[in-house]
Amino acid sequence: MNKNAFIISVLLAFFACFPVLFSNPYWIGVLNDIWLYAILGLSLNWIVGHTGLFNLGHAAYYAVGAYTAAILSTRYNIPILWLLPVAGAAAGLFALAVARPIIHLRGDYLAIVTIGVGEIVRIALENDIFGLTGGSNGIFGIPRPEIFDMRIRRPWQFYYLIGGFLLITIWFFYRLEQSRFGRALNYIKEDETAAEGSGINTAWYKLAAFVIGAVWAGMAGTLFAAKMTIISPGSFNFWESVLIFAIVILGGAGSIPGVILGAFLLVGLPEFFRNFADARMLFFGAAMVLMMIFRNKGLLPPLARKYAGVPRVKGGDA
């Protein structure tokens, strides 16, 4: 019996039954946030973990998605779940426009530009750009989502909605990892010059990866808007980008289970530390340092790719 398949089935079964076993809406609410950040983490993982693009402004695309969904649903009464693809597309287009000129920047220079884009987006939202975003008050009264005439409002209902979307996300990125596209990105990450030399159009691939990550963040934004029913620029600040980034690196860049575990720890730990009251973020910071020291490639780093017939080379996962 395949050990991994077994573990995955057990985990799936456990989390599918979680709201039934533990009816505490608070812990279900915490899990909802964890799922949401896992989705965001997976979308950023595609950019940072697989392609090696240093993006510290992911909250910008998350914000564009959330605001697109919020504006369209409050102004035109479009059911918010229908807006998932629209919000994703808006975030993707925005990423395409922004990333096209900057995608060639290296490492830390790309980081500062993405930070800049994130801050510009937040400030634009705060200043009520085009009279659409409601300024620092944000947008309120976002209608609750509905599925087959069932109104989603309780935490356990969101649990299955967001959890379901997380499963789709995992499936999508897993398939993408296995694809020719995914392999090309890994090649770029490991050695861009060699990839270019082998006929990979690195600029195009990098841009495509960036846009895919942004589209997914935009869709996560829609779920966030639907869950909160009110959004404001404060929810999309630099710290949010940093948190998503830390989820990816701490969990293990490039590894789907790693990113999900990262979301569990970085979103869940502050909740566990609630009993420390004022000191809870102190413990959180210390835990981040310790986890990095003891698992310095991330908690669950990706395994080296296996190819039929080729024996695995030891230490091949650089």
Binding site: N24, P25, Y26, G29, V30, D33, S136, N137, G138, P155, K227, M228, I230, I231, S232, G234, S235, P270, E271, R274
Partner: peptide, 28 residues
Amino acid sequence: GDPRAAALAAQRLATRNVAAVIGTYGSS
């Protein structure tokens, strides 16, 4: 002071049998 954290804090208070809640600081 963060809306997302506030939603969780509210969920948590809602499960802890409080008769009423005071708070908070900040409109959003």
